[in-house]
Design a protein around this nucleic acid. Structure first.
Length: 793
DNA sequence: GTAGGGTTAG
């Protein structure tokens, strides 16, 4: 009777009597909420009916419980299982407790146990397991899957090793657990040890090859076995999708003997992820099997990734069934397209939120630089996982709150959360911004201890860190130690050397790169071109630019043009640079104009510079770096009223001054000079000091900044500053007028132009106590390997 | 009690 009702409800039918029947059943509040949020389509009713049949089953079970005062153990167990399936944990627990002790069997325990596990109540499962009077192989296997699902692979393995008896299920559980974590070696070992293997074991092995990135071996394995089931086909297709080989995936999809819902979902999501929404949509519309929540979510997230929020929202509204994942996807879509209010509304409406929901909100606020909102999410969320911590670190790091990044990183440890690659990467890049070589080097050591080593993408961040601190030897050493190198690693080395004025070194790395399997991309060429321009390798640069399309198949992008204009500009070929700007097949970017502006200053072509500056302000009226460049240009011609005007303009337009830094125009050759420190323990004091310094500069009518630094600071404060500057985090800029391709001398980790009088005077004056040049991520307009004013990257 | 597909961090 019961099963008949259930089977009936599974059939897509238009019979309204079914629905009437369900009206008698009280609807759980969560479903009511879902119903009120979803449009009432016929499809929705069918699906709702299906979930109601489950509910009905449980109601019938409840009624039977009342009718039968002494139910048989099977009935008890069935009722418990039913409540568990519906997530009614409390009710299941209640029934279990009510069971007469004489009736209670091992299978009742097992039913409870698996109920807890499938509802992700791992702690309950563990506690119950420890209290069980006896255990059979099923209890052990359930426990195994409990540890696996909660991500505790080591615990699972311990249990597996201790198990009195192991069967095929135990082996398969472990094999696929290893497979999911990409641990090929362990998976293969168990597969070879298993006394019996079935389809599930083979599929586990196949998944292990795919997840560990050994797709070649996966393909071989797939070809070597003549018969596979639909799951194997789906896995190998998913593998092709992962490898972004959609043509192959499509071929196999057509070749496979039988396609189930998962096959369709895999191929559709493949197209959706690769950005081909027309094909994804076409397949979605023609698929002959009934769509499930995965299908809808795949299409939804595809539209979301393409930035088509309208279509995503459309899909979301049409979805007959929604779960947390679909809600998360639509929220992410809104957030990524800066529709914050809409996203927040959806977030508030959601029937239930999970960790990913909170993380999605947090991440998106962080990416948008909305630090207050991000912080609110972070502290409000019920639980913080590694993603949450990393996202918050990234949020702080992005807006330049370096001190907060380090503080949060410490909190993370003291709270017992282990840092992962992302967290390390974030903190390392913060160290790079702060030029805190010591702390970064410590992190480098820690990375090895924790076992992330160099395989992970952190290594690339480490390279960038060493370069930003001017420590090229360390970068080279780290690069040499890397097991694997990807395009980013090579690019970091090339642009790192380029940035420090080691153009030949950059070319050397580039030549080595060409000998490997890894192909140069557009960023590589930007690095090489900029290396050429900073080292005066004009002809090499020009020839690369004009052959890049032919040799490397890379069409010049705006960044390449900018490099070329910089290169020609530095070489004094301003007219050529100017005509290249005009020839560009796209609208020049602010940085392109900036390159021209910088060059015009060095080579005394003020008209071109001012023309470029006007263009920049049309495009970006709030570009701080450009204002400074323009003031430099005016300053170098002694046009002090224009310098002042520019400064006033900045104030009027509300151009943001970056915290921790201040800048001042000076009458002599050092045009812009600033002292600041975002990592000083007494930050307030430094800020105050800078403000005062700024005021005094104005009052004093442009006296040298160094004079003020040395005269107006109390002796104690001076000593304090000098100590911390030399030992910890010296951050200062001196923008100097240096022509093309000058050698750089390294003092400690800081670089000074050997040929530049100002620099030498400057350093001589301050000795190694206070300030030298350095490169900083956010101030790249100021900085430079060849420490030239108006240097451009 | 074990296998394949959809959402979040750098």
């Amino acid at each position: 009777m019961l099963s008949a009702t259930y089977r009936d409800a599974n059939q897509p039918t238009t019979d309204k009597s079914c629905l009437l029947q369900y009206r008698a059943v009280p609807m759980p509040s969560q479903w009511q909420m879902e119903m009120s949020l979803s449009p009432r389509s016929p499809l929705i009713l069918i699906l709702m009916r299906r979930s109601f049949s489950n509910h009905l089953e449980s109601t019938v079970v409840n009624q039977k419980e009342k009718e039968d005062p002494h139910p048989h153990v099977i009935k008890w167990n069935k009722a418990i299982a039913c409540h568990m399936r519906l997530g009614h944990l409390a009710r299941a627990q209640q029934l279990f407790d009510q069971m007469p002790r004489t009736t209670l069997s091992l299978s009742s325990y097992n039913t409870m146990l698996s109920g807890y596990v499938s509802n992700s109540h791992f702690a309950h499962a563990i506690s119950l397991f420890s209290r069980m009077p006896s255990r059979d192989i099923i209890s052990y296997n359930t426990m195994l899957s409990c540890h696996v699902r909660s991500g505790h692979l080591l615990t699972a393995r311990q249990l597996f090793d201790q198990m009195p008896v192991k069967d095929q299920v135990s082996y398969n559980t472990m094999i696929s657990a290893y497979a999911r974590h990409g641990l090929l070696h362990q998976a293969k070992e168990l597969f070879d040890q298993a006394p019996l293997t079935n389809n599930i074991s083979w599929n586990g092995l196949l998944a292990a090859y795919i997840q560990s990135g050994n797709f070649q071996l996966a393909k071989q394995l797939f070809q070597s076995k003549p018969k596979w089931d639909v799951i194997s086909w789906n896995s190998i297709i998913a593998g092709y999708v992962q490898q972004k080989q959609m043509c192959e995936a499509k071929k196999l999809f057509h070749k496979m003997p039988y396609r189930d819902i998962v096959s369709w979902n895999t191929i559709i999501s493949g197209y959706a992820q690769s950005g081909d929404m027309t094909e994804a949509r076409r397949l979605f519309d023609i698929m002959p099997v009934e769509k499930d929540v995965f299908t809808w979510t795949a299409v939804l997230s595809g539209y979301a990734k393409n930035g088509n929020v309208e279509e995503a929202m459309n899909i979301f509204e049409k979805m007959p069934q929604r779960n947390v994942v679909s809600w998360n996807a639509i929220i992410a879509a809104c957030m990524q397209n800066r529709r914050f209010n809409e996203a927040k509304k959806l977030f508030d409406q959601m029937p239930c939120r999970d960790q990913v929901t909170w993380n999605t909100m947090l991440t998106a606020y962080g990416n948008a630089g909305m630090i207050q909102e991000a912080r609110e999410m972070f502290y409000k969320m019920p639980h913080r996982d590694t993603v949450s911590w990393s996202a918050m670190l990234a949020a702080y790091s992005q807006v330049g709150l370096s001190e907060e990044v380090l503080q949060l990183f410490r909190e993370m440890f003291s709270g017992g959360t282990k840092a992962n690659c992302s967290a390390y990467a974030c903190v390392l890049s913060t160290c790079a911004d702060m030029a805190t070589l010591n702390y970064g080097t410590q992190l480098h050591g820690q990375l090895f201890k924790v076992g992330y080593g160099m395989g992970c993408f952190v290594a690339n961040v480490l390279l960038a860190f060493y370069f930003k601190c001017g420590s090229m030897d360390d970068a080279q050493k780290a690069f040499d130690e890397m097991h694997e190198r990807d395009t980013v690693s090579w690019n970091t080395m090339i642009s790192g050397y380029a940035r420090h004025g080691f153009g030949w070194k950059a070319w050397e790395v580039f030549d080595l790169m060409k000998q490997t399997q890894i192909k140069p991309d557009d960023i590589t060429l930007v690095g090489v071109l900029s290396a050429s321009s900073h080292t005066g390798l004009v002809d090499k640069g020009i020839s690369l630019f004009y052959t890049m399309e032919q040799v490397y198949g890379i069409t010049p992008k705006p960044a390449h043009y900018t490099c070329m204009i910089d290169l020609l500009g530095r070489a004094g070929r301003l007219k050529e640079a100017q005509s290249l700007v005009k020839e560009m097949p796209f609208e020049p970017e602010p940085t392109t104009w900036g390159a021209l502006l910088g060059a015009s200053r060095v080579h005394h072509e003020p008209e071109i510079g001012i023309w470029a500056a006007e263009k920049i302000f049309e495009l970006e009226p709030n570009n701080t770096g450009m204002y400074v460049l323009l003031s430099n240009l005016y300053a170098s011609y002694g046009k002090w009223s224009d310098v002042l005007k520019t400064r006033v303009l900045m104030g009027e337009r509300g151009v943001r001054k970056v915290p921790g830094f201040s800048w001042i125009e000076v009458k002599n050759k050092v045009h812009v000079f600033s002292v600041g420190d975002s990592a000083h323990p007494d930050k307030q004091r430094i800020y105050q000091f800078l403000e005062e310094l700024d005021l005094k500069m104005k009052k004093a009518g442009y006296v040298s900044a160094t004079e003020i630094v040395l005269h107006d600071v109390e002796e104690e404060e001076k000593v304090h500053m000098l100590r911390y500057h030399s030992e910890r985090l010296a951050v200062a800029f001196g923008i100097l007028n240096v022509p093309l391709g000058r050698p750089i001398r390294i003092i400690k980790n800081l670089r000074v132009c050997e040929d530049c009088h100002n620099a030498i005077k400057y350093v001589a004056k301050i000795e190694n106590r206070l300030i030298v040049l350095r490169d900083s991520n956010r101030f790249h307009h100021f900085s430079g390997g060849s420490c030239s004013c108006g240097d451009y990257w």
